[in-house]
Simulated assay, not measured.
Amino acid sequence: MRRVIAIALTGASLAGCSSLSLDSFKPAPPLVKVALESAPPGADATTSLGPACKTPCSIDVPAPDAGFSVTFAGPKFQPVTIPVQVIRNPGDFASPPTTIIEPSPVFAELRPAAPPPKARKPMRPKKPKPPKAAAAPNPAPAQPAAR
């Protein structure tokens, strides 16, 4: 009787595992080493896949089916994004499959950020000039009065 109960409990517990799929048996994508360099060195390099480091460096990323990008950024420099292609060669009976990263190494030249615009002093309104007095015509020289 104990066997029947144990088998029934095992069957009930397996029935609850409906999320079991063949995807869990697929191998993880192979890791590919990506070399990252920049001019000037010391930039923060971040991949669209997640991993990041300070240049010059190399990181391991899972080889995606499509390409990815690497963004280089640094203080006082404009960020630069470089697209990276993943080329897969399936191989055959004589050679193993290979994955190639293009470009290799991934290189970015950072340009200095434009200086911030200079703060202009606010313009003061000009003081109005006092109105000029209307010029009176020159009086004619006074003639002696006739007596």
Results as ranks from 00 to 15, higher is better:
residue 63 A to T: 07
residue 95 S to H: 14
residue 131 P to S: 06
residue 71 T to G: 06
residue 2 R to T: 08
residue 41 P to K: 13
residue 18 S to R: 12
residue 139 P to I: 11
residue 18 S to H: 15
residue 146 A to N: 13
residue 93 F to A: 12
residue 15 A to Y: 13
residue 112 P to C: 02
residue 116 P to D: 14
residue 131 P to M: 06
residue 109 E to W: 00
residue 86 V to G: 05
residue 126 K to Y: 04
residue 82 I to Q: 12
residue 3 R to W: 09
residue 105 P to R: 08
residue 145 A to S: 10
residue 11 G to I: 14
residue 127 K to T: 15
residue 6 A to G: 00
residue 135 A to C: 00
residue 136 A to L: 14
residue 132 K to W: 04
residue 79 P to M: 10
residue 98 T to C: 04
residue 67 G to W: 04
residue 97 P to E: 03
residue 141 P to Q: 13
residue 54 K to W: 02
residue 145 A to R: 13
residue 139 P to K: 12
residue 101 I to F: 04
residue 70 V to T: 03
residue 41 P to S: 12
residue 37 E to L: 05
residue 6 A to C: 03
residue 63 A to W: 05
residue 55 T to Y: 08
residue 28 A to I: 01
residue 132 K to P: 02
residue 21 S to E: 09
residue 45 A to W: 01
residue 46 T to G: 02
residue 99 T to A: 07
residue 117 P to V: 12
residue 117 P to L: 11
residue 45 A to G: 04
residue 49 L to C: 08
residue 118 K to Q: 13
residue 134 A to I: 14
residue 41 P to I: 07
residue 113 A to I: 13
residue 91 G to M: 06
residue 81 T to K: 15
residue 123 M to P: 03
residue 86 V to M: 03
residue 75 P to K: 11
residue 29 P to R: 14
residue 59 I to P: 00
residue 45 A to I: 03
residue 88 R to I: 04
residue 37 E to T: 08
residue 26 K to Y: 04
residue 78 Q to L: 15
residue 79 P to H: 04
residue 126 K to Q: 14
residue 87 I to L: 10
residue 88 R to K: 15
residue 12 A to T: 13
residue 91 G to L: 04
residue 130 P to T: 06
residue 136 A to C: 00
residue 13 S to M: 14
residue 6 A to I: 10
residue 19 S to R: 10
residue 59 I to A: 01
residue 145 A to T: 14
residue 15 A to G: 09
residue 124 R to T: 12
residue 43 A to L: 03
residue 7 I to N: 06
residue 25 F to D: 05
residue 31 L to P: 07
residue 11 G to R: 02
residue 124 R to K: 15
residue 61 V to Q: 02
residue 26 K to E: 14
residue 45 A to D: 05
residue 133 A to N: 09
residue 117 P to A: 14
residue 5 I to S: 07
residue 9 L to Y: 01
residue 115 P to E: 13
residue 117 P to Y: 07
residue 64 P to M: 03
residue 140 A to Y: 01
residue 103 P to S: 01
residue 126 K to T: 07
residue 16 G to S: 09
residue 103 P to K: 07
residue 54 K to F: 05
residue 124 R to S: 13
residue 119 A to Q: 09
residue 54 K to S: 10
residue 138 N to W: 01
residue 50 G to P: 07
residue 58 S to A: 11
residue 144 P to Q: 12
residue 92 D to Y: 01
residue 63 A to P: 03
residue 57 C to M: 02
residue 45 A to H: 08
residue 134 A to C: 00
residue 39 A to Q: 15
residue 111 R to V: 13
residue 12 A to Y: 04
residue 117 P to Q: 12
residue 101 I to W: 02
residue 61 V to P: 08
residue 125 P to F: 09
residue 16 G to Q: 06
residue 72 F to W: 11
residue 128 P to R: 12
residue 24 S to W: 14
residue 88 R to W: 00
residue 119 A to S: 05
residue 121 K to G: 08
residue 106 V to R: 04
residue 130 P to R: 11
residue 60 D to P: 00
residue 128 P to K: 14
residue 42 G to T: 09
residue 110 L to T: 09
residue 85 Q to C: 00
residue 42 G to Y: 12
residue 33 K to P: 00
residue 146 A to R: 15
residue 18 S to I: 07
residue 5 I to E: 05
residue 120 R to I: 08
residue 19 S to N: 10
residue 23 D to P: 00
residue 102 E to G: 00
residue 78 Q to D: 15
residue 126 K to V: 10
residue 42 G to E: 10
residue 144 P to C: 01
residue 138 N to I: 11
residue 110 L to K: 08
residue 43 A to W: 08
residue 80 V to N: 06
residue 15 A to W: 14
residue 37 E to W: 06
residue 44 D to M: 06
